[in-house]
Design a protein around this nucleic acid. Structure first.
Lengths: 126, 126
DNA sequence: TTAATATGTGAATAGCTGTTCATATGTTAA
DNA sequence: TTAACATATGAACAGCTATTCACATATTAA
């Protein structure tokens, strides 16, 4: 009956119908894949660099520690916007900060970040 | 009059009021900043890596060339979704492709990309 | 040619994200 | 204490983006 034919590929209707799959390749690659969570974390990490404001903040901080107001002035943006982004960068451990009186000085968390920025710059210069 | 006082800082109302700026630092950093467009391009480049689906596609392709259907199967996603993302990756020159009959095989554009993935992985493993 | 397979793509939509606004918090000087 | 300054933050909103759906295109076999 038609009923029986239908159930053969049940569940694949909304996805690719997977007729053309090269099983040997797929199975081998499946084994070597990192954990799902790890790839999520990696995407989240790169997402930070995927915004012009954050990239500019990181670049600015790669040259000197700086207070929030300095950054806002340099980038010609509102203090609140900068502060919000600094929070994101802080949460992702890309920047650190120290308070001196009323002023808070931000700086890059470690040299690793400059390496990644440079690597990216190298790639787009082609 | 109050009118005169107001005009002193006219235009800065919606931004930071820039009272606390350390001018010497700001001016020096301003000179060493890359062009605006270059930073935009850099952000656009990293934005590609900032999506779980694209990261997974790149990871999969780092291990073997593969057709669209293989990738969809591996990632358990619709063929259309994969195809859309492959277009983005293609436009950004992160993947290349070759047609063989009905099948289109995708692969990483160059080894540079694996380096960046590895660099990111290294950073989040801490 | 037609049928079947594999991929590409435009439109629509739901969810995410960055900025602004208003306000709160923290710090120093008077 | 109060006033002024520096930064942080929640809510709201506008713009972006990833997926789905429906269909178009491309290739091969019959």
């Amino acid at each position: 009956m038609a009923e029986e034919e239908k159930t053969i590929r049940d569940g694949d209707i909304d996805q690719c119908d997977f007729i053309c799959v090269h099983e040997n390749v797929v199975n081998q690659v499946l084994k070597a894949m990192p954990k799902e969570q790890q790839l999520m974390d990696l995407a989240d990490f790169f997402k930070i660099f995927g915004d012009p404001t954050r990239i500019r903040i990181l670049y600015v901080l790669s040259q000197s520690q700086m207070c929030v107001c300095d950054i806002a002035n340099l980038l010609q943006m509102g203090q609140s916007a900068i502060s919000h982004q600094l929070r994101v960068l802080k949460q992702m451990r890309l920047v650190k900060f120290k308070r001196e009186g009323k002023t808070v000085f931000y700086s890059l968390a470690d040299g690793h970040i400059q390496t990644i920025l440079a690597q990216g710059m190298e790639h787009i210069s082609e």
